[in-house]
Every structure is written in C-alpha cells, then in structure tokens.
Amino acid sequence: MGEDLRLTRSGGRLGAETPVRAPGPLRGLVIERDQDYREVIGFVVGLAGAGTDRVAAHEEAVPLSKDTSYDIVIVGISQGEELGIDFLAELRRNTGCPIIVLDESFDEARTRYEAGADQILAKPFVPGALIGAIKAALRGPSPNSVVPVATEIKVQGARFDAATRTVHHANVTASLSRREWQLLAFFLANTNRYYEARDVIDQVWDREISTEQFRSYLTRIRRKLEPLRLPFQIVTRPGVGYALNMDLTPVV
C-alpha cells in the first residue's frame, strides 16, 4: 500500500462483531463503525508495529479499555457521527495511552484535544501519515528531549510522583496522562523561567506536536490541578511565554 494512497468510504456495515486480534508486541484498540475503514485502520496499525483489537461500537470499546492494556487507541469518526467528549475522556482515564482521532470534520477539534485526543488526522486519511503518527505516539519523546525528573519531588506541601504520574496536595490527588506529565516535568525542572510554546515543544517532544496540542495539554493540566489549590501555578504572560511560577501567595 503506497503512502500516497488516500482511503475513501465505501459503504461498510455496522454490526456487532468479535474483536479481531492480530499478533504483535504492542497492542492497539481500533474503534470505527465502518467495517471497511475498520479493517484498513487495523492493517495500518499492524504496519506501524502493533497488534489490534477492532470494534465497531463505543459500547464495546469501554469494557475493553478497562480490562486490556493498550499502547495506542485509534478512534474513527464519520461526518455527522456523534462522539461524546465523555467517551474520549473515559478512554483516556482507562488506558492512559495516546489517542489518535480520525475525523471527517474538524468542527470540534479543540474540544476533542482537551477531552483526551493526542492527535487528530483528516479522514479519509493518508496511510503513511497515520503510520507516522502511530510510530511517533508509540515512540514517545526522543531520548534527548525528555526532561529528567526525580521519582518523587516535594515542594511547598505538594508531592509530585513520577512513577504514578500523580500530584498530591491537601488530601487531593490529580492523575496526569503521559504527555501531560512530560509537560509538567519540564516546568518543574525550569521553575520561574518563561518559555515560548515552540521552545517547550522542541525540548520536550522534539517537534512532534503542534502549538494547538501544546495549549490543549496545558489547559488539561491546569484543569486537573485546580482542585488541589496549589500555592503555585503555570502562568502565561502574553508576548513572553509560559512558566511555573513558584513565587505566588499560597492559596488558603
């Protein structure tokens, strides 16, 4: 299958089916109502180096996401199809792995990023682009771009646990996704220093995400940390950049 080939919709059927498993050291979950698309997406995931479970309905995906350890989730959305934000958020909570959305409409792209999508690609899609996105997500940041952080950091009454990607403060715990933690770890290692979005992306992910995705990750981190009432926060200064400001007056 050439990388310049574009896939087109061809009237697949919707129906319950047994998840299709393919051998592979890594495991992906493919959620797509159109049978033809579902088979092709599964094939492309295999080319990227992962085996797959393939399901048609969201109702089938939720229990699988709870009971199976996945490395990647691919969600296909057709024109006019509803994709509940709660569904994406639940997939994120259950799997903790990267989620790629294939979407025929980008009307709700920002909302889907904030709900848990790591990447959104156009549908019909170019197989080579999907393979590249999957490999980048499975690979994670390059070794030179990862910010090393101690397994556990305690500062101003808050505890940051890298092993579980959690933040604890005032008897409240927030759990972060892998990329959310990588972003927070960068700011923890560079407190009170301002960086432009592109500089952060280059150092943390080696240019693998867009500035829009960066802002979505930042929004999700802020929302998750808000209930902890931390005495510091990630702040934005227009024209200057972003920083973890440790000099704020403690919240009481």
Rank of each mutant, 00 (worst) to 15 (best):
Y37I: 11
G128D: 04
V235E: 13
R93S: 01
T164M: 09
R198S: 15
D67N: 08
V147Q: 15
G157R: 01
P63L: 02
V172I: 06
L88K: 03
D161L: 13
M1F: 09
R222H: 13
E152L: 09
I74A: 14
A89V: 04
K123I: 10
N192L: 09
R54V: 05
G28D: 02
P23K: 15
E212L: 13
T18Q: 07
K224R: 01
D4V: 08
E32H: 08
V167K: 01
S175Q: 07
D86L: 09
G96C: 01
A16M: 12
G76L: 05
H169N: 06
P63T: 00
E114P: 00
V101W: 00
Q79T: 13
V147A: 15
T111L: 08
R220N: 02
R9W: 09
Q213T: 14
T68F: 11
Q233W: 15
G76Q: 02
V62S: 07
R165L: 02
L91T: 00
G116C: 07
L47R: 10
L248S: 10
N192V: 07
R237K: 08
V73A: 06
V40M: 10
V62R: 01
E32I: 02
L248A: 06
R165V: 00
I99Q: 00
V149W: 01
E39K: 11
V40Y: 15
N171A: 15
P148L: 05
I153Y: 07
R178T: 13
T111V: 05
D36E: 14
F160Q: 09
E59I: 05
D247L: 11
T95Q: 02
L121F: 09
